[in-house]
Design a protein around this nucleic acid. Sequence first.
DNA 1: CCACTATATGTTATCGATAACATGGTCAAT
DNA 2: ATTGACCATGTTATCGATAACATATAGTGG
Lengths: 340, 340
Amino acid sequence: MRGERKSPTMADVAREAGVSSMTVSRAYRPGSPINAETREAIIAAAERLGYVFDSTAAGLSSRRTGFVAVTIPSINNANFADTVRGLTDGLGDSRLQVLLGYTNYDLEQEERLVRQLLTRRPEAIVLTGGRHTDACRRLLVHAGIPVLETWDAPADPVGSVAGFSNAEAGAMLVRHLVETGRRRIGFLGGDATRDTRGLDRRRGYLAAMAAQGLGAHRLVEAGPPPVSMREGAEAMAALVRRWPDTDAVICVSDLAAFGAVTECQRLGIAVPEQIAICGFGAYELAEVSIPAITTVDPHCYDLGRIAASHILGLLSDPSAAPSITTLQPTLMIRASTSVA
Amino acid sequence: MRGERKSPTMADVAREAGVSSMTVSRAYRPGSPINAETREAIIAAAERLGYVFDSTAAGLSSRRTGFVAVTIPSINNANFADTVRGLTDGLGDSRLQVLLGYTNYDLEQEERLVRQLLTRRPEAIVLTGGRHTDACRRLLVHAGIPVLETWDAPADPVGSVAGFSNAEAGAMLVRHLVETGRRRIGFLGGDATRDTRGLDRRRGYLAAMAAQGLGAHRLVEAGPPPVSMREGAEAMAALVRRWPDTDAVICVSDLAAFGAVTECQRLGIAVPEQIAICGFGAYELAEVSIPAITTVDPHCYDLGRIAASHILGLLSDPSAAPSITTLQPTLMIRASTSVA
DNA sequence: CCACTATATGTTATCGATAACATGGTCAAT
DNA sequence: ATTGACCATGTTATCGATAACATATAGTGG
């Protein structure tokens, strides 16, 4: 094999093809003025040498790294994964590539992550959630690149937004349950310190309960986010132990809700006849579960698509104002809350 | 705000702190010989200017980008997510950062992804699976960096391995089902074109059935991978329609298995009394489901940790030979196959 | 036939950091 | 006082590409 010692550069390819390295550079970027035959000869020379383009050098030189930095709370979550898919698909074959990191639902860790990601000189940055540490916010504002917040509808966004109101999602569920005759409604979520989106849904629950003149004291905290299925089950057991007359429960996610449903099955509690249960996120699980679980669909994939489209717009026209898109989450009524 | 026009560089920080830019560089890399007070003064100057380190330039200059490229079939899969978590945790606070991409279970797309990732000059690359296109294999061999394959036990690995035998996982389940008296065992998986690991499990099933002298013709294909819960349910319905005397089903994943379980519930088929069902992956769902689903735990998180440790070893001693680690998957017997 | 435009290619400086080597100062041992 | 070791810092060249500008050749309209 040739070039085993040190990988060949554009200059090597240029020599091999008998052109200047600038011409090789042109051969590699679409839309450059270059003769078709010359390009083919260059690509052939590159293949012969086993040349691999170096984005690191290109990024330094052109000041366009092709990275879009993205932070999500957890990589192990179908909802955020869907948003990332939407974003990746939306970036399509623009030359942009997602650079992903996760924060473990922790704002301090988000700040550290943002700091690290910014050293890679991304051309835009996408954050899950609209709450950040002060220092993080400052970093974002000064980064000089498009900033997009998703999965939230912040009152004071840093830049663009592709989000929805978590509080409204919580409130929707309360209204639905009240309409179907429930009054003693509990909320099952993570502890009060971390998952700001889950907390927003809880705030929506509290406000909607108050608006209906109902007591909203049935709060169970299932530990640090994300709340697992098992933790959902345990928290459900704790809830009915403490407030046996509960007639409905809103869970912070469909996973917790599924755990709650299985716990009810174990305890001999009929769902939805004795207790209605609903979740959040429109996970496939909620649809397949028996009974199927009422949930709210935040349109995760679309959030990603919209985020991508905002970013592409801002990059093509840097003078454009930030774009704010707020989607309306969709209530999906299923067997776990509605007696057929 | 200062430095709004153009972000400050090390040279700017150096000027502000009254030192040379080389000294600033030293202030930013742990283990460099530098006076503690000088370092503090430099950091302070950097903060004043809002300086952000540029890894792009550092990577070009030092030829160490700090990236570990990782390919997984799908970002929306708890198993692969766990492996990535293990890897990230394992890299810990080494200066290495994961650069993730997904292949959508497609070897052609894997090749394209690898090509793209290599342009970022990663210091190592991790691949899910041991099967690749010829061109992809060539790229990997010539990349001149540690290559690690995971989630498989390839006969002819490119470099290092942190894997397990998918065929053995399939065979384990067959043996377990035979031990509990089942003979008419089906396999429910994706179509035969894409998910090579799922296909390996199917091969294991076929071989084990043959070894037991049993017919292994009850194969249902549920479409392209990944097989969803819903597709698992549909495939289960098709299976019992076609072969009503089936007494056990091995599903390509726990998600498909859960779908199959719910379908049985709908059809009034008792699990495990009439049909035993098992999955793969040790998803939380399999544990919480009622009945709990028998599965095989491939130790996803550990695979990631081991991969990280192999990589760190190879990077610290480039002359070291590749490391091969093969874990034994663990059978987890649950209610879906065992009559208590 | 001339100026004029478009296309294809080359030349030079530069992006922001680090490697490798050079240097000056301090301190202990002889 | 001299030598040598060591620590802290500076100087210069370089990593591999691209921006910006320069140049050459071919075709076009008046």
